[in-house]
Amino acid sequence: MGEDIIAAMKENVIQGRKTEEDEGIDEELTGPGVLELTKEALDKGISPQVIITEGLTAGMQVVGEKFSTKEYFIPDMLASAEAVGAAMDVLKPHLEASNVETKGKFAIATVQGDIHDIGKNIVSILLKGAGYEVHDLGIDVPTEKIVEFVREEKPQYLGLSALLTTTMVVMGNVIKALEESGLRDKVKVLIGGAAVSDEYASEIGADAYCVDGFDAVKVLDAYQ
């Protein structure tokens, strides 16, 4: 019985159905969505860890594969990620009660001078869905504010976003400021955005470049 619920949950993540009202990729699909199935699973005594790893994350993994082969598009991916995000909100108190740690604290910001937020928001949603504690510092965030957040809140990971060739240099300034504050070795710095690349990441001393949100999940999971 428990296995059926988990299998249905994974399938509904892939279908992008948050609730029973939602249409899936397959328009024939009806019945409970991810949210209802999560509550049902908890009622049946299935552990939050099993729900996350075998239901939610397993489903998102398939979504990631379909996105990378261009079978899925951004709206498909966002619907799945929203379903997972809603399930994570339901699971949060249970995780806290059973002392389960998140996979780590991740802060993300679009750097000063740049106001693009779509890419940053997608990365936030996907990492939240993958079990990270995400702190979104916003757009056009001054370097000092990012450094202060790293000092005070001690995230293990920092994501920097910039879309423009004029603002990608600011990501390098943030890394320099972290070095000068003696914080560089406390946090892994990941960069992303249309203008940047692997080469640029090594040029400015970032730990990694992520091509998209799924790549960010892969990179962070590899640090676990």
Binding site: I74, P75, L78, I118, N121, I122
Partner: peptide, 8 residues
């Protein structure tokens, strides 16, 4: 114009 893929 913002992408309709992100917000319908």
């Amino acid at each position: 114009v913002l992408p309709v893929s992100v917000d319908s």
